[in-house]
Write a protein that binds this DNA or RNA. Structure first.
Lengths: 351, 351
DNA sequence: CGTTGGCACTCGGTAGAATCGAGTGCTAAC
DNA sequence: GTTAGCACTCGATTCTACCGAGTGCCAACG
């Protein structure tokens, strides 16, 4: 920052109107063509009413301020991350998405039912189709859910499946292997006891089961408690659904190296990392994270567009897309916003 | 076929010993180096005791018979799909995998518990790590499972979650929206009635619930029946878990075009296609499908290595990997076999 | 003073020519 | 049947020349 040049418009947060228009043109043209855009093209394609020489002068300033850059001397300009940032902050107020896509989204959420997992999975695929990028859907936080039902089923002698139905429609289960083989009556009373004690409790802080007097029942109950506790620890984060990973490989032109696509795919396979990344961004109120704004090295050439969705007015989860920094931000932001809104609406209705 | 040359070894299914050794050398060297291998390298690296000229002569025959080919005139030879096939059929009797990997597999299955879905998912990741290729795990056929428990939980007024616990440890669920809002008593008796009637029934052919006299209960019961029927139709195939998709992108050198990785990723996103592909291959007794042996265009440069796993002596599902035709078949086959066997063993114990 | 036309200069991209070398097929000798 | 020798092929690499889009700068203009 702290530029010492005494040029006009020292306020780095804003640009005079023509420079802003030029920056916008550079971003839009570059996103479309993937080629550095020169002053001529800007002067001609936009009705700025100035010559290419004037555009050139302004471009020099824009470059000095860090909004655009040249891939090499005397080539056209391409936006920097800062340039994209300005574009996103100033020219994407109302995200636009194509009518066909708008209808596709509406139709999808009109007909969608199913189990929550399937819905979220398919939502990620929808978002990917609409945006042409890889899409991510972070499921509702499981912690807030309360137990609404407990069931124990003997699958084999000594093997019991413990199932907990939660208030958000999720079902948690765990296959227990028990050294002593409780009989059916014990399993049934343990289930009844646990259901009675846990109904309404938060799944992540289930109380220890009260002793019943019967040793077998108590051992079973404690085992179930232990298993569920393990689940909470082992799966402390929300579920992540990723759709359209093939887009990443298809977009390889936009990335520096061919391996970067592989790195990104690998990154996406680590649910925990992605979920916490999304969470961090959102906690800071960030909805669009561009290139180097991101701390993770692999995302240097990527942009992330996020939108939280709300269920019954409360933050529930997040939808988002991952694509190259060179993306159509207006369309993407529009799509992500639309999907997040509709998803929240549907979950509020169904949940 | 029907070659008219009066050369030796007219039986196309077998090669004389030295030619087989040369073919083997070509495959192994090419897999390792990714470069066409010439007669000199073969003559020197293997202790064949013959000169490069002799190797050249044999190579000419091998080429005529279709086992190897030249990428261009006067380059070294690379294996054809037929060549890989011969290699797989003759030189991979005992699949070998590295000790470190062997231990990794054993350790994994020693400590693995969890819900079936998690286990299969992690198994796919394990197999991917061990083979360095994309791994697929097809879950047990859901149809064989019997109902072991039914539970209905009211999430909100008018919204009921129907849960069925199956004998294989799977849990099916469906969120029902009901026009009339049954009270808790009705929900409870419907659940009890369904559980009584369906216990032991195959999930894919649940009988219609018997009328109870109470209109609300019957409507609810029928709705549950309808929902589960819908699930069976909507999800007629086994679940598919894919691990290590990033390997596909990383292997891009082995593929003809850069887009092919994207195509493969897209293919893998269509569960139904992959599952039926795997099923078809296995039905024909095929465990390794190489390149053009495959009918699907996208798999022209790929090989698939499969191994079914058995639970309690019965076919249950499949594990496999997808990689370039230029892969280390011995190692891959060994890893796939080991994982399938261990997975079956674990499921037999736990299931 | 901002804007504009003119102009020399830069540099990636493409095309063509020259060169290199691994590897082959063929032939003749062993 | 095997081998050494040799001419030949052809992808890969390097070098050169050249084109042209685009820039920075300057002087002129309203």
């Amino acid at each position: 920052m702290e530029s010492m040049g005494s040029m006009e418009s020292m306020d780095p947060t804003d640009l005079d109107e023509r420079k802003a228009a030029i920056l916008r043109a550079v971003v839009e043209e570059y996103v479309e063509t993937a080629e550095p855009v020169g002053s001529q093209r800007v002067a001609r394609s936009r009705k700025l009413g100035v010559s290419s020489a004037t555009v050139r002068n302004d471009m020099t300033v824009l470059e000095r301020e860090g909004y655009i850059t040249q891939p090499y001397t005397s080539a056209g300009r391409i936006p920097t991350d800062l340039g994209y940032r300005y574009f996103v902050d100033h020219f994407t107020r109302e995200g636009a998405l194509r009518v066909a896509h708008k209808r596709a989204v509406a139709e999808f959420f009109e007909s969608a039912h199913r189990a929550l997992e399937d819905l979220l999975h398919e939502t990620s695929q929808l978002l990917s189709r609409v945006t042409d990028h890889t899409a991510m859907v972070v499921g509702p936080q499981p912690e807030v859910a309360q137990v609404r039902g407990v069931q124990l089923v003997t699958l084999h002698p000594g093997v019991v499946l413990a199932v907990a139905v939660l208030s958000n429609g999720a079902v948690e289960k765990y296959t227990l292997e028990l050294p002593d083989q409780p009989d059916e009556a014990q399993v049934a009373s343990a289930a009844a006891a646990l259901e009675g004690q846990w109904n309404g409790c938060a799944f992540n802080e289930l109380p220890e089961p009260r002793p019943s007097g019967d040793d077998g029942i108590d051992r079973l109950a404690r085992a179930v408690r232990g298993a569920f506790g393990e689940l909470v620890v082992a799966r402390p984060v929300e579920m992540l659904y990723v759709g359209g990973t093939s887009r990443l490989a298809a977009e390889h032109e936009s990335f520096a190296t061919a391996e970067s696509a592989a790195h990104l795919l690998e990154l996406l396979e680590h649910q925990v990392v992605v979920v916490s990344l999304v969470r961090n961004l959102l906690d800071q109120g960030v909805n669009v994270s561009i290139g180097s704004e991101n701390e993770i090295e692999e995302l240097r050439d990527c942009a992330i567009v996020l939108a939280p969705y709300q269920v019954e007015g409360e933050f529930a989860g997040t939808v988002g897309v991952l694509g190259p920094t060179r993306m159509d931000y207006r369309r993407t932001i529009g799509a992500v916003a639309a999907v997040s809104q509709q998803l929240g609406r549907l979950l509020t209705r169904v949940d």
